[in-house]
Design a protein around this nucleic acid. Structure first.
Lengths: 136, 136
DNA sequence: ATCACTGTATTATTCTCTTAATACAGTGAT
DNA sequence: ATCACTGTATTAAGAGAATAATACAGTGAT
């Protein structure tokens, strides 16, 4: 058989992990925001084109376009009509976004645990335990 | 005017908090699971009817029915065809679910924080700080 | 037997997201 | 000027979720 053994068509490492349980354009926005606040894209960087990114994410260009439009509405990227899209150079905004995302994660977590009936102290203890577990 | 002043039609305190960003039947399942693991509904309890709960949640009966069906598929509730639905009496299953939900919350949290670039130790420190902040 | 209550099933309609296939206008290098 | 590249806009189609309006069958109290 011709297709036995190690596949020769190596996928271009799709890191998008898109699922169908939430709107795709939202998931794309989240991924891009993460890439911005973690420095994968630096302030002022040119982003790949809509078509390129859509291809990489295996998504319709319209969907990628929508994600971009929303990000632009939030001020994280700006457009030069015919030359491309760029990451904002407002580093303060980026730092604030990162802090906000961390605070949101923390408060979502505390809310979840409290809904389950765990106090702040218990939650802290459980998290500490989980981290210890990991190290083994 | 007849409708001035304090509204006389007091809403029955809707605790469902349903949003449109995710399928409603999923959110209903989450809410019911929470009510089960936290003892709002005890093992063996009879649940309100599909129509009643649908009314309370301001949702179509079909949607509530779907949420129930899924919960039943997972074994958390069982049906007596014409007399109603009941919470499972398998307390082990309920306890396991609660533990699993806590572990999931913890691992989601750690994943989020690590994606933002925070180590386990940093995350622990930030959570501790957040809890201190709250007490004031 | 009647009646009100259960869960369940069916059909049609609406809405949002997604895909698809194009088209257009501006830019910059050749 | 030409050509490949940008973002953008439009129209059509499909899938999934949700609503709406019914209908049916079994149960249990009256």
């Amino acid at each position: 058989m011709t297709l036995e053994g190690t596949p020769n068509t190596k996928q271009p490492e799709n890191e998008w992990h898109l699922t169908s349980d939430r709107p795709v354009f939202i998931q794309i926005m989240e991924k891009l925001k993460l890439d911005i606040v973690t420095g994968v894209y630096a302030p002022g960087d040119k982003l790949p084109s809509v078509r390129d990114l859509a291809g990489e994410a295996a998504v319709n260009p319209n969907t990628m376009q929508r994600a971009f439009s929303e990000l632009e509405r939030e001020g994280l990227v700006y457009t030069q009509r015919t030359s491309g899209r760029f990451i904002t150079e407002d580093t303060t905004m980026i730092d604030q976004l990162k802090e906000q995302m961390a605070l949101d994660a923390i408060s979502r977590f505390l809310k979840s645990m409290r809904q389950l009936g765990f106090s702040g102290e218990e939650t802290l203890r459980l998290l500490t335990e989980a981290l210890k577990e990991e190290k083994q």
